[in-house]
Amino acid sequence: MANIASLFRLPKLSYRVWRVWMRNRDVFMKTYKTGFLPPLLEPVLYLLALGLGLGGFVQLINGEPYIQFIAPALVAVSMMFSSFYECTFASFVRMYFQKTFDAIIATPVNIEEVITGELLWGATKSLINSSIVLGVIFAFGLAPSPFLLLIPPLSFLVGLLFSSIAMCFTAIVPNIDSFSYPNFLFITPMFLLSGTFFPLAAIPELLQVAAQLFLPLTNAVKLTRALALGRLEFAPLLNLAWLLIVTPFFFILSINLMRKRLIK
């Protein structure tokens, strides 16, 4: 019991988390010119291939064009990919190969602040990348509602959730190759099954409920779609509530798991 309680101990944090965030920002600023290309080009490819190409053969029940259906989902998907990648592979490289965390905790910054800085940076990456994708779909005329301005703050929250989940894996994997497991068991199914490329109504009801409860991306996609299209009803609030409950859970868990890995 004491062990489980120690996994949910509230971290001791101070403004120093931003020092860690600033370190990652400074590195990012050195390479941002190449860093901007993938989030800019990838959605264009998806919109062309799936939206226009495949979309020509797809008839949605509500008569909406297929390209319109998948465009907001691409924004949500980029939130997931960018933050999950940042706090798995990139954090692991910093922790394990570069020993960056060891170097920082020799200073007045503690390990909990280091990990929090990493998580906030992962959320920032989600914000940056998904905003670029949002810009692309906006340019295609696929995000017509002014509520789209709420998508960047949402992307920070969604990014924080995926960063925290990612960091839990980073805390327990023995080596960097092990990330292929969460990738193909968790990320890829979610990418395909979260109401991204087909409406969830197409699958059995039980699976629909499961997707809402257990796949974070489902909630992110629903919210992003609602904001991009200005379809604000009651349901998206439930999705938001889900994110607001689950995120702190993984946030605190990931910090404690990392503390256990690094402080011996």
Binding site: D26, V27, K30, Q98, K99, T100, D102, A103
Partner: peptide
């Protein structure tokens, strides 16, 4: 420290 933990990005 014993091991090199300088920041290779900087």
């Amino acid at each position: 420290p014993q091991e090199d933990n300088l920041d290779p990005d900087f």
